[in-house]
Design a protein around this nucleic acid. Sequence first.
DNA 1: TGCCTTAATTAACCTAGGTTAATTCTTTCC
DNA 2: GGAAAGAATTAACCTAGGTTAATTAAGGCA
Lengths: 195, 195
Amino acid sequence: MDSQQLQDSFQAYFNDMGHKIDWSKLTQPIDIHPIKKGDYLFQQGECAERLYFLHTGLVRYVSVSEAGKEFTQTFAKSPRIIGSTRAMVTQSPVLFGIQAVEDSMIISYHWQAFFQEMRHDRGFLECYCHFLEQVFIIKEERESAFVKDSAEKRYLDFCADFPELKNKIPQQQIASYLGITAVALSRIRQRLKRG
Amino acid sequence: MDSQQLQDSFQAYFNDMGHKIDWSKLTQPIDIHPIKKGDYLFQQGECAERLYFLHTGLVRYVSVSEAGKEFTQTFAKSPRIIGSTRAMVTQSPVLFGIQAVEDSMIISYHWQAFFQEMRHDRGFLECYCHFLEQVFIIKEERESAFVKDSAEKRYLDFCADFPELKNKIPQQQIASYLGITAVALSRIRQRLKRG
DNA sequence: TGCCTTAATTAACCTAGGTTAATTCTTTCC
DNA sequence: GGAAAGAATTAACCTAGGTTAATTAAGGCA
């Protein structure tokens, strides 16, 4: 898989959003990050002021508390833009790490430089807005579920929303996505079998 | 306060973001919503596909669970854009209501029509991106705090972040912002006094 | 001023989920 | 195939916060 192919599929991903984008002004070079299952694209606390594109694979956003407890913010399946909007925009240390759940191919651009070149393109801006809207909406829905639903309900929703993940990833990761421990999840699963 | 003044201050709010915006294409009429303390701009479950501008006042975003438990997603102080990005964009029922914490003056545009007219303006698009980035960043930080910090820590952070609110709003609302009950908050406050 | 309503505190009890640790069940890899 | 490492389950116990309810403190407002 060469650099040109990766860039092409990055652009195709944007083009598919339905806006005309003129890519000719983009001169920024890409970095290529082949990440093995279990490895991190970047860790919590690092600087990650880049725009990442998950070409193939599956990753999770994971943050860990002072006490060492892991929390999986979200799973992301290719093809998709990934990374921390906050870290890109504010250039502050990122609040979570990105870990490959399976072997993944990721490319990246330096966001400031990339945006400086692309902000003049109206089609790109519309795509970027669209992207921000989407991630925001997902966060809004997840926040709502967290507040309104029990852990059991969230588990059932997870199974419905990610049927393909349910049997692919370790239960620990599902638990940390639900905001509970693996032990608690195991209890819930048992209760569901019984009930 | 007449309609023209309100629209002017809406536009001034955007102009202050530092992008040139041509407002001449905007023909949409505004609605004016004077909301009394305690009243709702809209309730959870309604359609709220409008872009709201909080001209003066203070509101909170509040969602309530099946079980009747209130959760305050955020407080918003004027001047600011408010409303549900999700409801605007997807035209689905809104997941939370907006309640005036103090008497507030709000204006609104029908988002679809508004955006249709303004999307051709690059300056506006950049402002909109900037706005989305900001609300997303705030959500990202709040999510992180929720996962990583105890209720006590979150209360102390709240007091530091919103010193002006601390003594202005009822503790019930603070508790619901922290994701705990008023009883639990009272216990925490007592513990802090003692400790 | 005093009444009425709402807000805050306190206490007693309950529960979901956390913690630790022992026990099985799976992978993986030599 | 078998040893070692990692996952999942189960059990016993603990704790933060929820629930209910009784008590006190504060705001409106007639």
